[in-house]
């Protein structure tokens, strides 16, 4: 039992990060129809910038805030400079653009931050909490709590505010949204800022546990993407649940089967979901308009 609990804790911790990456994916996908392979780089940037701002003498919360704001700005720049100019391009082209962006950001991070592994202190000390024979880091609680808080905040934003509804309207039908007076360019900017900011926040939460380096982004992007797809592409609730589930699958595979193949678990699950219910767990059945 304590063993299971231990795997559960570690699964929820990584799952929280996957869930945030998946949410970020979903926001950009809904707004622009683009699957952003550079999503993982936002997580890397969030952690990295915090590390360096903190090392420069800033208090941790301020450093984290700067990192999130800077990453959001990078997200907006990505949209303006690379995604907007290619609107309407085929899927392959968009995939290559965002993969190119991901490689570019990684290359820049390698130049600026170096190739070392970095970290900063956990928010509330390194003493683990003991629960029924298992231990959980306080930072894990921060990660899980932070992910839950982001999810609730997003849900309120999308359902209770005019601006959030404008985002939903734009993702449903861009032209129609423009016709009713929504500034869709602004919505697009907002979506990228939001998505990048959430990614950076995930980086801030997880870096004290997993550490970070310039090349962690791609792996996280693939996992987040897998999580989003597991839940049903374009569905924020699905993305969140999918990310958490993926983290749990990985932790259980690592614990009970083979730690070498824990990453395989994620992709086996994805393939199974795609084969048997291509809409994902929470997606709606889609029909093609011809």
């Amino acid at each position: 039992m304590s063993e299971f609990l231990q795997f559960l804790f570690s699964g929820l911790t990584v799952g929280a990060v996957y869930a945030l990456v998946a949410l970020g994916f979903t926001i950009i996908y809904n707004a622009s129809g683009v699957v952003n392979f550079a999503q993982g780089e936002f997580v890397m940037l969030g952690g990295m910038i915090t590390v360096f701002a903190h090392a420069a003498g800033l208090p941790l919360p301020l450093a984290a805030l700067i990192a999130i704001a800077a990453t959001a700005a990078i997200g907006v720049a990505l949209n303006k400079l690379a995604i907007e100019p290619a609107r309407g391009a085929p899927v392959v082209t968009l995939i290559i653009i965002t993969i190119g962006a991901s490689i570019f950001i990684r290359g820049a991070a390698q130049l600026i931050f170096g190739k070392q592994i970095h970290t900063f202190p956990a928010f509330s000390g390194d003493d683990p909490i003991h629960v029924m024979g298992a231990t959980i880091l306080t930072q894990s609680l921060w990660a899980i709590g932070g992910a839950a808080a982001v999810f609730v905040a997003l849900w309120l934003f999308f359902t209770r505010t005019i601006l959030g509804r404008a985002v939903l309207a734009t993702s449903n039908n861009r032209l129609a949204a423009q016709l009713v007076g929504i500034n869709t360019d602004f919505i697009m900017t907002l979506s990228f800022a939001l998505s990048a900011g959430i990614g950076a926040f995930a980086g801030v939460l997880i870096t004290p546990i997993t550490m970070t380096s310039y090349d962690v982004g791609l792996g996280l992007a693939l996992k987040g993407f897998a999580g989003a797809m597991l839940g049903g592409m374009g569905n924020p609730k699905g993305a969140f649940a999918g990310g958490l589930l993926l983290g749990l699958f990985e932790a259980m595979t690592a614990g009970y089967l083979s730690s070498q193949y824990k990453e395989a678990a994620a992709f086996v699950v994805i393939l199974a979901v795609l084969f048997f219910m291509p809409q994902g767990l929470f997606g709606q059945k889609s029909t093609d308009r011809v």
């Binding site: 290619a86 391009a89 082209t93 190119g100 570019f104 290359g107 130049l111």
Partner: peptide
């Protein structure tokens, strides 16, 4: 060598944006 990834990423983006 330091700039390899940076330039590769840039080339990928530029060609796809301007020469779709």
């Amino acid at each position: 060598a330091e700039y390899e990834q940076l330039i590769l990423g840039l080339v990928m983006m530029l060609v796809m944006i301007f020469l779709r």
